[in-house]
Design a protein around this nucleic acid. Structure first.
Lengths: 165, 165
DNA sequence: GCAACATACTTGTATTTGCAACCACTGCCG
DNA sequence: CGGCAGTGGTTGCAAATACAAGTATGTTGC
């Protein structure tokens, strides 16, 4: 077993629960991609279960909220803004169209693009979800000062920008 | 269309790209659950595609890395630590067991629990993945001071603690 | 003005995940 | 010790997502 050369060998095995068994110095608790995925997995499960009574999952919510903000966007723009792969956006939008929540039509300038916009029913749905979303955010940010929350938002945003390359 | 009563009506429609169409004051760019999910979706896609040559996806990587850190854990502990639902952990562990990357046996103290541990092959695999993981982290944290990175880690960790309730 | 290539999106199929119902084991109470 | 509530884990089936291969439109060079 590899050992830190700066540390003297010890014959007493550590037994506390925070002991790290890994032979490398890699620590998941400090590994940002892990921390983000872990948080997001839980957000999807927790907030997602709150959305279920509305017949909506996390992906649908994110797309609807995105459309609520910029009332009509191309499939590719929705994908860029939300980080959801284009093929998934395409299929989710198809279902939302069937359900009468969005409309889809070819771009005017460039007919390769497909422009998606909320119907009145779609807007009504998003507006019903927003208060729940805000309530949920306040739960997960419990104990955060407004300074800390602002800091988290900024850093997450910069992270996302880095991922665009 | 509703209009902010504090703002005088204007006949000139705003045309800049940052315009918000929503009638409410809800802004996704400041909404933490959205920012986290967006980041995580991209991490899963980007880092995930780097993992594919190793026959591993993001969920498998997270579980292997978790086992690398605490060499044997129960299914429920893996679920708690990673945020992945237990039924998913159970199934992924089954596949990893078939592939010879982990071993599974009933708990000694309490035989309801199932204890999972890495095999030598599993440990070899994780150790091959760690350098790639570190490289990926450095890409997404480009431009972050060590102070900022530390801050992000701390805040993400507190967020996760809040979600445990 | 028409190949040839690029961009924007869609879709068939395979894999992964979510849910609910289930099985395995423990600890407690009579 | 026998039932029975509680905890930990698994699994059949449905829904969601990933990938690769497709269609539709636009742009460029000849």
């Amino acid at each position: 077993m590899k050992q830190d050369p700066d540390m003297p060998a010890t014959s007493i095995a550590p037994t506390d629960s925070t002991r790290i068994d890994s032979i490398s110095d890699f620590n998941l608790n400090d590994y940002v991609p892990f921390l983000i995925n872990r948080g997001a997995t839980r957000v999807a499960a927790d907030f997602g279960s709150g959305l279920k009574p509305h017949g909506v999952n996390i992906t649908v919510w994110r797309l609807l909220a995105s459309l609520n903000q910029h009332s009509s966007q191309r499939i590719g723009e929705l994908s860029d803004f939300t980080g959801i792969e284009m093929w998934t956006v395409s299929r989710v939008v198809s279902r939302l169209e069937q359900d009468g929540m969005v409309e889809r039509h070819r771009g005017d300038e460039d007919a390769r693009g497909v422009i998606v916009s909320l119907t009145p029913a779609g807007r009504t749905l998003v507006e019903a979800l927003i208060p729940e979303a805000q309530r949920y955010e306040s739960v997960i940010l419990e104990g955060f000062s407004s300074e800390e929350a602002r800091c988290l938002r900024t850093l997450l945003d910069r992270l996302f920008e880095n991922m665009r390359r």
